[in-house]
Design a protein around this nucleic acid. Structure first.
Length: 576
DNA sequence: CTCATCACTTAGCACCAGCCGA
DNA sequence: TCGGCTGGTGCTAAGTGATGAG
């Protein structure tokens, strides 16, 4: 088949693809016409612990009522975690635990520090050990449940459901300094659950003897099941897997919006640079905030209810205390230093030289303010997004993160890929490009607990490989010498074989070294989030095609399922 | 405009299955 | 065959942004 025909076919295929996507795209917010599913899987009921596993209060054994005992087991299961040593955690837990106690228990148990959960903790550890042994039946059962509840039919497709199990009760673990850590997350019953499906579908049945809170037929939303959660008072949903049509299409749309931004980003940048000079304070603030969002890929920064969540901020909610200004620092002029906790209480720390006008503006915004005052007191995300909407249809603050992430990947890949290098080296380049994005977006992780050790094992391997290489080289040398003397076919062949061996070992060594570099550079950086949420997958697919790298080297099975649309669509010449 | 509500995306971490080397 | 390691997966918290009432 000629290249041209191949291309034709590819284009045809893409066309039908697009039609397939579009034929089912509805207007006016309708998300589906038919939706059928089996409802959620509830958490297994509480199983009381055996009598020989005891709880002690103030040194004396005490039998707890089932309700109080269940909550006690939640705490016992977390005993090893440092959470349980934190004041707020303990205080919240104890308050909620007491609500579950009988009056007698309540009267007796008044001090958490007098509670001894050790036997429970030991018991649960043994249980999870035991579960590991008899896992075969359990695996089969899990598979059966997955087959029964893990799929739904949406329009003409059988789709995988992302989270078909309802969250089990337990103790709430927030991230960072969360004021609600330790609170009791209550058990969800069928009576708490709203089911969403189409009228003409077979409705899911609630467990025997129970009722749903409501059965709804709302095809303007994508969720199958929802319930209210008692910690933040928010709604939780059961939705489809990222591989589903409905999610994939949305994902595609997201990158198309970011590509439209690419076309007008110069105009927008010129505009906000003009606005730095505006007579109006609110416009200046808007322009500086947008500059930070664009340049530093900061999140929008919605307001949060004080005391309800950990104290974290994004761009619009930055406070004076999060910023330091240096007219000159480390040989650079007009440096802004950012130091704040962002989403998930991940620290953002960055020193950035900015243009003089930005610097002067930030200085102005900080004048006569207390550390805890808002930096942008005339701005919030809704004002900013309204402005962005006027600049481009569908433009919001988060589009800048998507755009800058994807364009950075594309540009880094161009810069770092060396056509002469082998596959592992090219993949290292890919990971480095990915890493540049992760750094831009501040996607951090705690260094893996086994990091030092695993680096060491790898180093040992490298050393061993080096020894092996010098041995092989020595053997090659002597084989050559041998061949020079003997001048026969056999010794010539021996030289060739030794040469091959040296080459093979060199390649293996190089692979190991690349691996070590990659791992070291990745110590505190998480690549997954950007790969999954910010990088237009078509860039990666095109790169793979261009350099003949199997796409499996870049995307694992799940990721290939999620990005199936992109793998189908993108050619080697795709431009973001 | 503010505020609450809702729907949906983005996020890090715990845990576990499966693989690899001893 | 076993035990340790690691990539993948599940889990669910924590964001964004639209909408609509007051």
């Amino acid at each position: 088949m000629t290249k041209w025909i191949k291309k034709q076919r590819r284009e045809d295929r893409r066309k039908t693809m697009r039609q397939a996507w579009e034929e089912e795209r509805y207007t006016d917010g309708v998300k589906w016409r038919f939706l059928e599913h089996k409802g959620p899987v509830f958490a297994p009921p509480y199983e009381p612990i055996p009598g020989n596993v005891r709880f002690y209060y103030d040194g004396k054994q005490m039998k707890l009522s089932p309700e109080a005992e269940e909550v006690a087991t939640f705490f016992a299961k977390m005993l090893d975690h440092e959470y349980t040593t934190k004041d707020i955690f303990r205080k919240n837990f104890f308050k909620d635990w007491r609500k579950e106690m009988t009056p007698e228990e309540k009267a007796k148990i008044t001090d958490l520090s007098k509670c001894n959960f050790t036997e429970m903790s030991v018991y649960f550890k043994a249980q999870s050990e035991a579960r590991k042994q008899m896992s075969k039946d359990e695996k089969l059962e899990n598979e059966r449940v997955l087959q029964e509840y893990g799929f739904c039919v949406m329009d003409n497709h059988k789709e995988r459901i992302a989270n078909f199990r309802i969250e089990p009760p337990g103790l709430f673990r927030g991230r960072g300094d969360h004021p609600k850590m330790g609170m009791l997350k209550r058990r969800i019953r069928p009576e708490d659950v709203i089911v969403n499906c189409s009228k003409d579908s077979k409705h899911p049945k609630p467990p025997p003897g129970t009722k749903w809170k409501e059965v709804r037929h709302d095809n303007k939303v994508t969720w199958l099941v929802s319930w209210n959660e008692n910690i933040q008072g928010s709604i939780k949903y059961i939705m489809l897997n990222p591989s589903s049509r409905i999610k994939g299409e949305k994902d595609w749309q997201k990158y198309e919006t970011a590509r439209r931004l690419k076309k007008c980003v110069d105009r927008i940048r010129n505009q906000y640079r003009e606005d730095w000079k505006s007579k109006e304070m609110r416009i200046r603030q808007r322009a500086v905030a947008l500059y930070f969002i664009d340049k530093l890929a900061l999140r929008a920064g919605n307001e949060k209810e004080e005391g309800e969540t950990a104290d974290t901020v994004g761009c619009c909610s930055l406070r004076v205390e999060h910023i330091n200004l240096y007219p000159e620092k480390d040989g650079q002029e007009f440096v802004v230093e950012f130091d704040f906790l962002g989403k998930d209480s991940i620290r953002y720390y960055n020193k950035v030289p900015v243009e003089k006008r930005v610097y002067k503006n930030v200085q102005l915004f900080m004048e006569n303010k207390q550390p805890e005052d808002d930096l942008f007191d005339r701005l919030n995300t809704s004002i900013l997004n309204k402005h962005l909407q006027e600049l481009m249809d569908g433009l919001t603050a988060k589009v800048f993160r998507t755009y800058n992430a994807s364009i950075t990947l594309q540009q880094q890949l161009k810069e770092l890929t060396n056509p002469d290098e082998n596959v592992p080296a090219k993949i290292l380049s890919y990971n480095r490009a990915n890493r540049a994005v992760a750094i831009l977006c501040n996607h951090q992780r705690a260094p893996p607990k086994t990091f030092e050790k695993s680096m060491q094992t790898l180093q040992t391997k490298i050393d061993a490989k080096k020894d092996q290489l010098s041995d092989a080289r020595r053997e090659l040398k002597s084989a050559k010498a041998d061949a020079k003397v003997r001048r026969d076919e056999k010794s010539k062949r021996a030289v060739e074989a030794k040469k091959k061996a040296v080459e093979r070992i060199e390649e293996q060594l190089m692979k190991l070294e690349v691996q070590a570099t990659d791992r070291e550079e990745n110590k505190q950086i998480a690549l997954g989030t950007s790969k999954l949420n910010y990088l237009d997958p078509r860039i990666s697919v095109a790169w793979c095609k261009k350099w003949e790298i199997p796409v499996e080297k870049i995307y694992n099975k799940t990721q290939r399922e999620k990005f199936a649309w992109a793998i189908d669509m993108a050619d080697d010449d795709y431009e973001f």
